[in-house]
């Protein structure tokens, strides 16, 4: 009996401390839900950080939830259904599947929760068929990022390379666009041959295994384009295991910290940087605008940048730091000069 009483007391205490967090709707602080693909990837951790900063600044409560595995659309759908029940005023989501997620978005629409799509686009046709309207898309242009990587490869190899490609999960809009961008950029250069292109499903260990197998089959590979840095880092390990460190040019995507270290050390060639924390920030800002019935543009582009060894020299690092800290100037002109 005593035990039961103690348990009730504990539960009661827990509930009062928890309720402080959840009774936000009564105090007029709007709640924005942010559903990520996963939280076991630095990219999404950064995105959450940016989103949280914006939420704190704008005085909204942020509810961040993610599936355990990046490809688990069904779990993401459950999370969306559950968050709708808590009466959130806006939903920011990074879809695990461009088409599959539409079923979840239909539920948000029925509950009249405005939708902000982040990072991965929703399939336009599937959304139109289901009558789902999204407020805006926040993300970087993955196709453009793939092009940046391809053009850089052409430049550093002098137009002669035998390339192995590590793809993301097949059917993923993000990876497919990067791949198309890269292929389009190298297509016009006859000296560049893509000798192998295999999915490594965004993962580091699979990047290792798949690239190790590629090296077995094509020992003459001299360049790698990986659609994400985790796969690129896996490939770096495989290259090291084969004793060919530095002999194969690896270009990745995402500019993770580990990748930047590898670029600075000269074992990796370059990586296309996205700015996930800016995506998170822009998404929450748009959500707040939508809640306040202010207009938002249908497409919010977040900048991309090619990180190379040159850029990671101490002087350049300092410059980038100052830029990021202070001048949040639109640098579209500068970016376009780099791309040419």
């Amino acid at each position: 009996m005593k035990k039961a009483l103690a348990l009730i007391l504990v539960v009661a205490a827990f509930s009062t401390c928890c309720n402080r967090g959840t009774t936000t709707t009564t105090t007029g602080r709007p709640t924005v839900a942010f559903v990520l693909k996963t939280l076991n990837h630095p990219f999404f951790v950064d995105m959450r950080r940016g989103a949280q900063e914006a939420a704190d600044r704008l005085g909204v409560t942020l509810q961040v939830q993610a599936a355990e595995r990046e490809i688990d659309v069904e779990k993401q759908m459950q999370i969306v259904e559950n968050l709708i029940q808590t009466g959130v005023q806006a939903l920011c989501i990074t879809p695990s599947g461009s088409r599959e997620i539409v079923s979840a978005l239909v539920k948000a629409r029925d509950a009249k929760v405005p939708i902000i799509v982040v990072d991965t686009r929703v399939d336009a046709k599937a959304a139109a068929d289901a009558g789902v309207r999204t407020e805006t898309f926040v993300g970087s242009d993955n196709y453009e990022g793939g092009r940046l990587a391809g053009e850089y490869l052409v430049k550093v190899t002098g137009g002669k390379a035998r390339v192995g490609i590590l793809e993301g999960i097949p059917g993923h809009e993000t990876g497919d666009s990067r791949l198309r961008g890269f292929r389009d950029a190298v297509k016009a250069t006859p000296g560049i041959t893509i000798v192998a292109s295999q999915p490594a499903n965004w993962e580091r260990d699979q990047g290792f295994n798949v690239f190790q197998n590629m090296l077995q089959a094509h020992s003459d590979i001299d360049s790698v384009f990986a659609c994400s840095d985790l796969m690129a880092l896996g490939a770096l390990e495989a290259i090291a295991a084969a004793g060919r460190t530095g002999g194969i040019k690896v270009i990745g995507f995402d500019a993770l910290d580990d990748a930047k270290k590898a670029i600075a050390a000269g074992t990796m060639e370059a990586s296309v940087a996205q700015f996930p924390s800016e995506m998170g920030r822009a998404a929450v800002e748009s959500a707040v605008k939508v809640i306040r019935s202010e207009p938002v543009p249908p497409d919010i582009k977040v900048r991309l940048e090619l990180v190379t060894r040159h850029l990671l020299k101490p002087v350049s690092l300092l410059v980038t730091k100052i830029r990021r800290a202070g001048w949040r100037v639109r640098r579209s002109g500068e970016a376009s000069t780099r791309r040419t």
């Binding site: 069904e74 759908m77 088409r99």
Partner: peptide, 16 residues
């Protein structure tokens, strides 16, 4: 049910 729910049949569905 899963296929109808997601409006999609995925070869990677049902993991775990």
């Amino acid at each position: 049910i899963l296929t109808a729910r997601l409006n999609s049949a995925q070869p990677i569905a049902g993991m775990m």
